[in-house]
Simulated scan of single mutants.
Amino acid sequence: MAFAEEHHKWLEYHKKRRAGERKDRLERGHRHGEQMFVERVWWPIFGNMDDLHPEYEVADWRGMPYFVDFVWKQGQVKFAIEVKGYGPHVAKTDRTRYRQELNRETYLQIAGYRIVAVPYDELEAAPELIISLLKALLTPCLLKNMAEGCRPFTRIEADILRMASRKNGYLKPVDVVRGLGLNRRTVIKYMNILCEKGKLKPVPVQGSNRVSRYELIHSFMDAEIW
C-alpha cells in the first residue's frame, strides 16, 4: 500500500481516539517536518507506523502537559523522537524556552524515555544517514524483546513469510498449501493475520475484488525475525 494512504489511515486512527487539546495538537503539530520524518525515515525502515504515536502527550517536571513529536513504544522500551529545526533550538532571544526544553529532555529520560533528536536539515539533505543511525539504535531493543519471548510471528507465520521471500515477494495461497501441507482454510487464516500485522498485502485481480496473491512487505528486521 502506498505511503500516502497508510499515513492518512494512521493519522485518522489517532485523531478518532483523541478529543480537545490532544486532538487539536495533532492537527496543528504534525506538519511538514514530522511528515517528512515518517515518509523519509520511519517508513523505509519499518514499512508501517505500528506503535508510533504522533504528538504524544507527556507531563514535564512541573506537571505541565507537553507534546513530543513522536513516541515509539516497543515492549518495555520507550523512545521520544523530536524533529528539530535550527532556529528555535539555538535562538539566543528565547533563552527561557531553550532552558525549559533541555530540562524537559532530562526529565523524559528520568521517566524512562530514550531521547532521539532528528535534525530537520538532515531530513532534507541526507535521510539515509538518519536511517542508518536509527537502525543501529533500535535493532538491539528489538532483538532484546525477541529474546525475552516477544516474538512477533508464530512458526507457521514465519514459514509463510520465508516462502514469500523466496518467491520474490509474491505468494499465492496454493503455494502455501503445497509447500507447508496445510489446508486452504488454515492458509487463508494465517495470511489474513499477516495482513493485519502489516507483513502481507492482498493483491486483487485486475478489475475485480478477488484476491489472487499476496505481496510481502519488507522490514529491516526480517533477517533477525525469520
Rank of each mutant, 00 (worst) to 15 (best):
R210H: 07
L137P: 07
Y170H: 13
F153Q: 07
R25T: 07
I156S: 04
W72R: 05
A59H: 12
D222Y: 02
L138K: 05
V71M: 01
I217W: 01
D94R: 13
I188F: 09
H30D: 15
G20T: 10
H8R: 11
G179Y: 03
V118A: 03
Y113Q: 02
R151Q: 12
V77T: 07
D175W: 04
V205Y: 10
V58Y: 02
E12M: 12
R62V: 04
E196G: 10
E157A: 00
V58A: 08
I217N: 02
G207W: 03
G33E: 00
K167V: 08
R97M: 06
E105G: 13
E105H: 15
Q35V: 07
W42D: 14
V177M: 11
G112R: 03
V71F: 08
H30N: 14
M49T: 14
L200Q: 04
V77S: 15
R162D: 06
G87L: 12
D94I: 07
K73I: 15
G87V: 13
F3D: 08
G112S: 10
Y107W: 03
L102K: 14
L194G: 00
E82P: 09
D222Q: 10
F67A: 04
N145L: 00
E21H: 03
N183Y: 15
K15R: 06
T154L: 05
V116T: 04
F79P: 01
C195T: 01
D175G: 09
I45A: 06
E6D: 13
A136K: 06
G181N: 03
Q100D: 15
L194K: 01
D50S: 13
A59N: 14
A2N: 15
E5I: 15
G29L: 08
T96K: 09
Y86G: 06
E39R: 03
K189L: 08
E27V: 00
K15E: 02
S165L: 04
F70P: 11
L171Q: 04
Y170F: 13
K167W: 03
H32A: 08
D51S: 09
V83F: 06
N48L: 01
E128P: 11
M191Y: 03
Y190T: 08
V77P: 07
I193F: 09
E148W: 06
K172D: 05
E27N: 11
R99M: 14
M1Y: 12
